[in-house]
Design a protein around this nucleic acid. Structure first.
Length: 491
RNA sequence: CGGGGUGUAGCGCAGUCCGGUUAGCGCAUCUGCUUUGGGAGCAGAGGGUCGCAAGUUCGAAUCUUGCCACCCCGACCA
C-alpha cells in the first residue's frame, strides 16, 4: 500500500531503516555511529522508561547517578571485565583545546594531557563498586538496591539505529547483598521484571534463560537473558541480568562484617535494558505500512481526523471531536485531535499509520448526519463505522484488543518458527534457510559452540530456564547433554 | 584493518566511458487558484563551491594525480 516503505520480504534491513525514518523515530548524526533520537522516538522511549522505572521502584530500587568518566585504573581491576570491554572504549586523554600556529584551526593542547586517562563508561560496574566500598561496612548497610538511567559508549565497528549504536541510552541496576542466595534471587527477580515488561507492555514474547560461558557478560558468574524473535527469523537479546558473585567486591575490596562478626566479601548483581528495546519493538510488530505500536506504549493512542469541505462543517465536527477527545482522556486514553488544514485527510491517514498510532477515528459530514464515526485499527488495518454514543466504550475496548492481538500474533510467529531437532543436517538447513529458534542438545563445550557458529552463524541464545530438562546427545558431537539449548542467528 | 562501492539542490538520482550552449530529472519547499471519506490537480517560482586540492586544456561535473568523507561485505558486539 505504502509506496514509501520497502516490503519486508524484498529487503528486511531496508524495511527496518524505512520504518525508523518514516515513523520519525531517529536519524543518523554527524557523529559516526551515534544517532539523533527524534521526538516521536524519544516519546516512546519515555513511555518505556516510565513503566520500567515504576517496576524498579516497586521492587525496592532507588535511582542515583554516577559519572560518565571512569579513571582507567578502575577499569583494569577486574580482569575479565577489561578483556571484555577494552576493545570498544572511547578514551579521554586531554582537557583543553587551543588555536593552532596560524590561528585557523582548533587543535588539542598537548600541554593539557591528563595524568590519568579517563574512559567513557561502557558500563558502570567499576566506578560504582569503587563507590560502594565507602558505603558498606556492616550487614546493616545491605542490601544496596540502586539503578541509574544513563548514556554509555561502546565503540562499535558497525552500527544500526537503535539496534547497535556507539552511544546509547539505558538503565543499569547495581545491587549489593550479604549473601549469595539473596544476590541470585535479585538477578532472577530482575530478569522476571524484564520478561514481564517485554510481554505485557511491549506485547513481545520472550524466552528466558542463561547465557553460555562465551556469551556471558564480562565479569559475571551467570547471565540471565530475555531473547525475542524478530520477523526475519533472527533473535534479539533484549535484556540481561547478571549475577556477579563476589568478583567486583574482590576487585574493589568491598567487605562487610556479618552478624557473626566475620569479614565477608559482598555479593552483587547488575542488570540493564537499553534503547535497543526500541529496535525490538519496531521489529516485533510493524508491517509494510509502517510502525505498529502496542497501545500501552503508544505516546498517542488515538488520533481523530476531521474530514470537511466547507468552513461551517469544520466547526461542527471540531465540537464533536473535542467532546470525544475529552471523554476519552477522562478514561486515561491519550488522544490527539489533528485539525490542521495544511494537510489533507489522506495524508494524515498515511502519516499516523506510519507512526503506529493504534486507533484512528475519522469524522466527516456524513458521520455528522448519521451520528457515526469511522474507527480504523492499526494492527489489522480494519475499518468500521460505529455510533458516536458508543465511541468511548468501543475505543477503550479496542485498545485492549489490539494490545492482546499483537502479542498473540507475535507469539504465533515465534511458535511457527521454533523447531526442535536432533539431526545436524536438518539443524543446519533450518538455520541457513528458514531462521528461527532451534532447540537442540549441546555437550556444554565452547569448542562445539564455536564449531556450530562457524557452520551456521548461529549462536546459543540461551539455556532456557523453564524448558524441559530431558537429557540427550549433543547434535554436533554426540556427547551427553543434560537439556536442550536454544540456537539462532542473532542481531 | 582487508575486499567492493559512492560523493552533483533538503532527500533520491541522471549526466562522467567519448571534455564543448545557461548542469538536468523526481520528491520536498514557496505562491496562486481549484480541492479535501486513503499521501490531491493545474500553473508558476526559488534553491548548486558538481567532496577537497593541484594539474592537463582555448574550455573540466567529465581526463590525470593526491587527499578527504561516507556506505556495503568480513573480523567485534547490548
Amino acid at each position: 500500500m505504502s509506496k514509501e516503505i520497502t516490503n519486508r520480504k524484498d529487503n528486511y534491513s531496508q524495511w527496518y531503516n524505512d520504518i525508523v525514518n518514516k515513523a520519525d523515530l531517529a536519524e543518523n548524526s554527524p557523529v559516526r555511529g551515534c544517532m539523533v533520537i527524534k521526538p516521536h522516538g524519544y516519546s516512546i522511549w519515555e513511555k518505556m522508561q516510565g513503566v520500567l522505572d515504576k517496576m524498579f521502584k516497586d521492587t525496592g530500587h532507588t535511582n542515583a547517578y554516577f559519572p560518565l568518566f571512569i579513571p582507567k585504573s578502575f577499569f583494569s581491576r577486574e580482569a575479565s571485565h577489561v578483556e571484555g570491554f577494552a576493545k570498544e572504549c572511547a578514551v579521554v586523554t586531554h582537557y583543553r583545546l587551543k588555536n593552532d600556529e596560524e590561528g585557523k584551526e582548533i587543535v588539542v593542547d598537548e600541554n593539557a594531557k591528563l595524568d590519568e586517562e579517563l574512559i567513557i563508561r561502557p558500563t558502570s560496574e567499576t566506578i560504582i563498586w569503587h563507590t560502594y566500598k565507602g558505603w558498606i561496612q556492616s550487614y546493616r548497610d545491605l542490601p544496596i538496591l540502586v539503578n541509574q538511567w544513563a548514556n554509555i559508549v561502546r565503540w562499535e565497528m558497525r552500527t544500526r539505529l537503535f539496534l547497535r549504536t556507539s552511544e546509547f541510552l539505558w538503565q543499569e541496576g547495581h545491587t549489593a547483598h550479604a549473601t549469595k542466595e539473596e544476590a541470585l534471587e535479585e538477578t532472577r527477580r530482575m530478569i522476571d521484571v524484564y520478561a514481564d515488561f517485554a510481554e505485557n507492555w511491549m506485547a513481545m514474547p520472550v524466552l528466558k534463560g542463561t547465557k553460555t560461558d562465551s556469551e556471558r557478560f564480562a565479569g559475571a558468574i551467570e547471565t540471565y537473558t530475555i531473547e525475542a524473535l524478530m520477523q526475519d527469523g533472527k533473535a534479539l537479546q533484549s535484556g540481561t541480568s547478571h549475577f556477579l558473585g563476589q568478583n567486583f567486591a574482590k576487585a574493589f575490596d568491598v567487605t562487610f562484617t556479618d552478624q557473626s562478626g566475620n569479614l565477608e566479601y559482598v555479593w552483587s548483581t547488575s542488570w540493564g535494558v537499553s534503547t535497543r528495546l526500541m529496535g525490538a519493538l519496531i521489529m516485533a510488530h510493524s508491517d509494510d505500512n509502517g510502525l505498529v505500536l502496542p497501545p500501552k506504549l503508544a505516546p498517542t493512542q488515538v488520533v481523530i481526523v476531521p474530514i470537511y469541505k466547507k468552513e461551517g462543517q469544520l466547526e461542527q465536527i471540531s465540537a464533536k471531536a473535542n467532546e470525544l477527545k475529552q471523554q476519552l482522556q477522562e478514561k486515561g486514553i491519550s488522544v490527539k485531535y489533528d485539525d490542521r488544514d495544511t494537510q489533507t485527510p489522506g495524508w494524515k491517514f498515511s502519516e499516523y499509520e506510519m507512526k503506529g498510532v493504534p486507533v484512528r477515528l475519522a469524522i466527516g459530514p456524513r458521520d455528522m448526519e448519521n451520528g457515526t464515526l469511522e474507527v480504523a485499527r492499526r494492527d489489522t488495518l480494519e475499518k468500521e463505522f460505529i455510533s458516536q454514543d458508543q465511541a468511548v466504550e468501543h475505543v477503550s475496548q479496542l485498545l485492549e484488543n489490539i494490545q492482546s492481538n499483537i502479542y498473540e500474533k507475535a507469539l504465533k510467529y515465534r511458535e511457527d518458527n521454533t523447531y526442535t531437532t536432533d539431526d545436524y543436517e536438518e539443524f543446519k538447513d533450518i538455520l541457513n534457510n528458514r531462521g528461527g529458534f532451534v532447540y537442540a542438545h549441546w555437550d556444554g563445550t565452547a569448542e562445539t559452540e564455536q564449531k556450530i557458529k562457524e557452520d551456521t552463524k548461529a549462536t546459543i541464545r540461551c539455556i532456557p530456564v523453564d524448558g524441559d530438562q530431558q537429557p540427550g546427545k549433543c547434535i554436533y558431537s554426540g556427547q551427553p547433554s543434560s537439556q536442550r539449548v536454544v540456537f539462532a542467528r542473532a542481531y
